[in-house]
């Protein structure tokens, strides 16, 4: 059975633990984000696209890989929506199915150098794969 996009959106909202209904579409998240310029789906669109059942747009976007989880959006959101959690929800949904990892341990030798802290690899493995 295929899951509808609307159902996927609902599941992501639940997974995120954030309450997107609090959003008043003010755009402070996009204004605060250090990488919004490169995102094809800006942070402010996450709440409304998920509420409107359009998760596919977000699952296909580069935004979920660009997001740094720096929490600037969540810190400055006047509504306490916690947009970083919404992005995390989409990202988790994207990487959890088998074979959908964005980054694999096989790539480590290519990216690592002498000084790269373990922390970087650990974080990337946590963020980009399940």
């Amino acid at each position: 059975m295929t899951v509808t996009e609307k159902e996927v959106s609902r599941q992501i909202l639940q997974l995120s633990g954030a309450n997107a209904n609090l959003c008043i579409r003010c755009g402070r998240c996009t204004a605060a984000c250090p990488v919004a310029g490169q995102m094809d789906q800006k942070p402010h669109r996450f709440a409304s696209l998920l509420l409107h059942g359009q998760a596919d747009t977000l699952l296909r976007s580069n935004s979920i890989w660009l997001c740094l989880s720096c929490m600037a959006c969540s810190e400055r959101c006047p509504r306490g929506v916690d947009p970083a959690r919404l992005v995390e929800g989409v990202r988790q949904y994207a990487v959890r199915p088998r074979g959908m990892a964005h980054f694999s341990p096989d790539q480590v030798p290519d990216v690592v150098d002498d000084e790269m802290p373990q922390q970087a690899l650990m974080a990337a493995l946590r963020k980009y794969r399940k």
Partner: peptide, 23 residues
């Protein structure tokens, strides 16, 4: 607006324009 900072002697306003969908 998400941040205001001073650079090269004037204020920089980092904001969002939701209708143009950009920062």
């Amino acid at each position: 607006v998400g941040k205001i900072y001073e650079e090269d002697g004037h204020l920089m306003v980092q904001g969002s324009d939701l209708l143009e969908d950009r920062q």
